[in-house]
């Protein structure tokens, strides 16, 4: 697969960024809507997250008196870290625009940076909730990151690469045979991880402000205005990142490998379908499960680790995945 000319790459990169930034509030809207509907509520309109963002961007930024200079910058660093993970992933075209510069491990690193900055900022103002939220979030992160790496290795084992583009191209070249038991095991593990990383229901309730249970909300209590806007937006982008990665690896069909109007349009269209169905599934799942006790999150992540290791074992010992 030859990479297109640099200016085409650049155009693709800009378009991908615009796409991901643009649709992430929409997916949050879909999840809220589906959740409300399956609970027999009407739910907010799909575009409500955009309106919330517009409202927040018009508001001033206010900080606690005890906050240091870190507090104003942390949400933006976190946001930029998440946005800069976008060009490393395959969205509707492989190779990914920045695929030459880094693989999926870079993405894990960027997610970790974003998490770290949020947790640091939560501790900064010295409020109790911030401290509780950040310790909880770092603990979940400590469980989720090794799982993430293991899943990447399990996904990459058949193609021998941790590059997202190579994994997707390998999957495309195999056709339907790409759906091996090893891949399905690893993707189940990633599904569990997706819920933990994006703070969805069995792990963290995105809709609560109850001090005993909140994780992410506890960390961002001190923020308002534009800062809160980028935090909320970043949360949506994180969901798009992980859902996009999962669907690209599990169901790579439709991702274009050569430039062409038809292929690209199909790629974008299918990407939107894949992302919104993931959001739909998560919304339904959130209705069916209750929030788990914090220490049971370790049970979930152990299951994910075991599934990922099982997938690696199947690939290497039986050759099922190749």
């Amino acid at each position: 697969m030859t990479a297109p000319a640099p200016w085409v790459q650049f155009l693709l990169l800009v378009f991908e960024l615009a796409l991901v930034l643009g649709i992430s509030p929409m997916l949050v809207g879909i999840m809220r809507r589906v959740k409300a509907r399956s609970q027999r509520r009407l739910g907010p309109p799909l575009l409500q997250p955009y309106r919330d963002l517009r409202k927040l961007f018009r508001k001033d930024r206010i900080y606690a008196e005890s906050a240091s200079t870190l507090t104003p910058y942390a949400p933006w660093v976190s946001f930029v870290a998440l946005v800069s993970a976008v060009p490393f992933l395959p969205w509707f075209f492989v190779p990914a625009p920045l695929g030459f510069a880094g693989d999926l491990i870079v993405v894990v690193g960027l997610l970790a940076l974003s998490r770290f900055m949020t947790a640091l900022a939560a501790l900064d103002a010295g409020s109790t909730f911030g401290g509780m939220g950040s310790t909880r979030d770092m603990w979940i992160g400590a469980l989720a990151e090794p799982t993430f790496l293991l899943v990447i290795f399990a996904w990459g084992a058949p193609s021998g690469s941790t590059q997202a583009s190579v994994i997707v191209e390998h999957g495309l070249s195999l056709g339907l045979a790409h759906l091996s038991p090893a891949l399905l095991l690893a993707s189940t593990a990633f599904g569990v991880l997706l819920l933990a990383e994006t703070g969805r229901l069995p792990v963290d309730n995105p809709a609560t402000h109850l001090e005993l249970t909140m994780v992410h909300e506890a960390m961002v209590l001190e923020y308002t205005g534009q800062d809160l806007a980028v935090i909320e937006w970043g949360k949506g982008i994180k969901f798009v990142l992980l859902a996009g990665l999962l669907t690209a690896v599990l169901l790579p069909w439709g991702i274009a490998t050569a430039l062409g109007a038809g292929a690209l349009a199909l790629g974008v269209g299918l990407l939107l379908v894949k992302l919104s169905s993931t959001a739909w599934l998560v919304g339904h799942l959130e209705t069916r499960v209750a929030k788990w006790r914090l220490f049971r999150v370790a049970d979930l992540s152990t299951l994910a680790v075991a599934l990922a290791l099982g997938s690696i074992a199947l690939t290497y010992l039986v050759g099922v995945g190749s």
Binding site: S180, P181, A182, D299, T302, L303, V305, A306, L309, G310, A313, L314, L317, V318, G319, V320
Partner: peptide, 28 residues
């Protein structure tokens, strides 16, 4: 969960070599 992984590893280690003998060619 880890015991499940142990079961898988044990099964793969013990039965893996027999796979070519299986009648159905789906290796897993």
């Amino acid at each position: 969960a880890l015991a499940g992984l142990g079961c898988l590893l044990l099964a793969v280690a013990v039965v893996g070599p027999l796979t070519p003998l299986a009648a159905v060619p789906a290796a897993g």
